[in-house]
Design a protein around this nucleic acid. Structure first.
Lengths: 121, 121
DNA sequence: CAGGATCCTATCCGATACTG
DNA sequence: CAGTATCGGATAGGATCCTG
């Protein structure tokens, strides 16, 4: 995003340890933790899905945000995109190895949060 | 819903049900994965920090966003806030058990992403 | 079906100034 | 020190229409 988090200040003897994140990692983290990114990645864990399946799977997402999110994640090499040139066209999305790897802590995160929360009123 | 995340799809007839927008977990997830939330949580993993320590630790964050992020995370019971009524006042922040729990997959996520990415130029 | 193009609004967020 | 208050530009994101 805005670059320039955490550049240096890497002086020896600093107690609050810091993650220097002025690198490309910042962008990937931002995409992964974007409003819809996490849900797309988790959705694709169980099976590859087509565009409309993702849209219906993730409640509340608009087509615009879905395609935008997908585009970013494909560029980050977290998910792949396969086009079947039929009519009507079929486009399928799935996790790459990298995406699969990333989705594990994400799912873990999600599970820990839901486990902690009180049941619905 | 506390029922959690997308599961099966092995069942015929029922389709992939998923995350509702009004799921309470959604708010927590949004806070945790907010622009600054993840960095605040990771920063507090090693030690409790005061306001200015957090501000200096997380480069690029404004006071406004820091206090706003902290307020949200305190409300979610992810971090605690302790005020020492001296002059000048001292306010310390730290992770609750819940926050500690959540910070693990977050750190894991961060590590996996940085590990995958090409090294800095 | 899978999206791109537009338009428009809500909010995010930084900069600045001020307070106990 | 640890914030709050306010303003304004940037951006996220929804709604709608359109196309191959």
């Amino acid at each position: 995003m805005t670059e320039g988090m955490q550049d240096r200040q890497a002086e020896a003897g600093h107690r609050y340890d810091v993650f220097h994140t002025d690198c490309p990692a910042r962008d990937v983290v931002d995409h992964v933790t974007s409003r819809w990114g996490i849900w797309v990645l988790i959705s694709l864990r169980n099976s590859n899905l087509r565009f409309y399946e993702l849209r219906e799977s993730i409640q509340g997402i608009s087509e615009k945000m879905l395609s935008q999110t997908l585009r970013a994640l494909v560029q980050d090499n977290l998910i792949w995109r396969e086009v079947e040139p039929t009519t009507p066209p079929q486009v399928t999305y799935g996790l790459t190895d990298f995406g699969q790897d990333i989705s594990e802590p994400l799912t873990d995160l999600f599970n820990r949060i839901t486990r902690q929360l009180p049941p619905r009123p």
